[in-house]
Design a protein around this nucleic acid. Structure first.
Lengths: 208, 208
DNA sequence: TATTTTAGCGTACAAGTGTACGCTGAGATT
DNA sequence: AATCTCAGCGTACACTTGTACGCTAAAATA
C-alpha cells in the first residue's frame, strides 16, 4: 500500500510531459511531435506510451493545463507585487514577459494551439485566456470608474494585446523587446483611458 | 512562341495552389499537408510537384503572398467605401470580417503561420500585417490630431485587435460574431480616444 | 504464500511520407 | 525537318509513423 507502483507511474508520466515540452521550440510545434520520439526522449518504449495517455491529443491537453497552471501561478505572484505598491500595468506586463522568457515552450504551446487544428485544444487555450480576462475585468470594475460591460471589453482588449506582444517577443532580441514592451504599455494606457471615458457616466450610447 | 507550354505550366501551378488552399480547414493546417496529397488533388503525379516548387515550404510562402494580396485588395475596396462617406472603424471592421468569411482558408493560413514553425513564414506574415499597420498609421497621422509615434502605436494596437477578433470569429456562429464585432468596435474606440489624448499636445512624457 | 494486476518491452505490420532516377512526348527553337 | 527543352509520369527505395498483440517481472492484494 506504500504506492511504489503508482509513484513510479506518475514519474514516467511526468517524464513524458517534460519530454514533450522539451521537444517544442521555435521550429517544432506540438503537431510535429511524434509519439515515438516523445517516448524515446522519456526513456520508454513507444507502446508503453499508451499506459499513460490514450493518444497524443490527451498528452497535449494535459500540457495545456500545465502551461495554464504555471501562468496562473506567475500572475498570482504579480498580484502580490502589485499589492505591495507596484504599478498595475507595468508589473503585469513585466511578469508576463518573464513567463515568455522562462517558460517559452509553455507559452509557445498556448500560442500555437490557440489557432491549432483541434477544436478541443482551441477551447482549452481559450478557457485559460478567458480566465485572465475575467480576473482582470473584475479588478478593473472594482478599482476604476467603469461599468461591468466596459470593464470586460477593456480587459479583453488588454489581454489580447499582451498575449500578442508576447508572441512577437519570442522572435526578438533584448533591445527589440524593450521597445515592444514600451509600446505595449502605451497601448494599454490608451485602452484604460478610452474605457474610462466611455465606461463612466451615461456616455454609453454613442461615441463622439 | 505562342506560350502554350508556359501557359499550361502556370495553370497547373495555380492548380497546386488552389488544391493546397482547399485542403486547409479548421482541422487541417498547412504543416499537415503532404506533398503527395496536394499533388493528387491538383491532378498531377507527386514527383511532378518539383517542376513548380522546390518543396512545400516554397508553396507555402507563395500562398502567404497570395493571401496577403487578396486581403490588400479587399482593404483597398474598404478605402473606397470610406471615401464615399462610410465610418472608418465600422467599414474597416466589416470589410475584414468579410475577408474572414469569404476567404477563411486564406485567413487561416496567415493566422496559423504567424506563429508557425518556420521563421520565413512568420516573417512573411509579419510583413503583410506590418503593411496594414503602416498604412493605418499614415492615415491616422494625417486625419487625427496624433503625432507619428502615437499614430503608429495606435495603428499597431488596432490591427492586433482586429486580427485577433478575426481569429475568434472563425469558431463562432453569426450571433456570437455580432457580439464580438460590437465589442471590437468599442475597443477600437478606446484606443482612438486614448491615443488622441496622449498623442496630442505635450502630454507625451508621462501618463496621469 | 499464492494470486492477480499492470508498467514496460519487443516484435511485427500496414500505411504514408519525401524524393532520386530515368523515360516519354509534345511544344519550342533553330 | 532536325534538334532541343522540359512538364509530367512510373517505379523504386529508405524512412517514419501509429498501434495491435503477447510476454515478463515486479508490485499489490488476498
Amino acid at each position: 500500500m506504500s504506492g511504489v507502483r503508482a509513484q513510479q507511474k506518475q514519474k514516467t508520466r511526468q517524464a513524458l510531459i517534460v519530454a514533450a515540452f522539451n521537444q517544442l521550440s521555435a521550429e517544432h510545434s506540438f503537431s510535429n511531435l511524434s509519439l515515438r520520439e516523445v517516448a524515446r526522449e522519456a526513456g520508454i518504449a513507444p507502446t508503453s506510451f499508451y499506459r499513460h495517455f490514450k493518444d497524443m491529443n490527451e498528452l497535449g491537453l494535459t500540457m495545456v493545463d500545465e502551461a495554464g497552471l504555471t501562468l496562473r501561478q506567475l500572475m498570482r505572484q504579480a498580484r502580490r507585487r502589485i499589492a505591495s505598491g507596484g504599478s498595475v500595468i507595468n508589473t503585469s506586463v513585466l511578469t508576463f514577459m518573464e513567463f515568455i522568457d522562462t517558460s517559452s515552450n509553455q507559452f509557445r504551446l498556448l500560442l500555437r494551439e490557440r489557432s491549432g487544428t483541434s477544436k478541443a485544444f482551441r477551447a482549452a487555450v481559450a478557457r485559460e485566456i478567458q480566465h485572465f480576462i475575467l480576473e482582470l475585468a473584475h479588478y478593473l470594475e472594482a478599482e476604476t470608474p467603469c461599468d461591468a460591460n466596459h470593464a470586460y471589453m477593456q480587459a479583453e482588449a488588454m489581454v489580447t494585446l499582451v498575449f500578442n506582444a508576447g508572441a512577437d517577443a519570442l522572435d526578438q532580441d533584448t533591445q527589440q523587446r524593450e521597445e515592444l514592451t514600451e509600446r505595449l504599455i502605451w497601448q494599454l494606457r490608451y485602452i484604460a483611458k478610452g474605457a474610462n471615458h466611455y465606461g463612466t457616466h451615461q456616455v454609453n450610447s454613442k461615441p463622439s
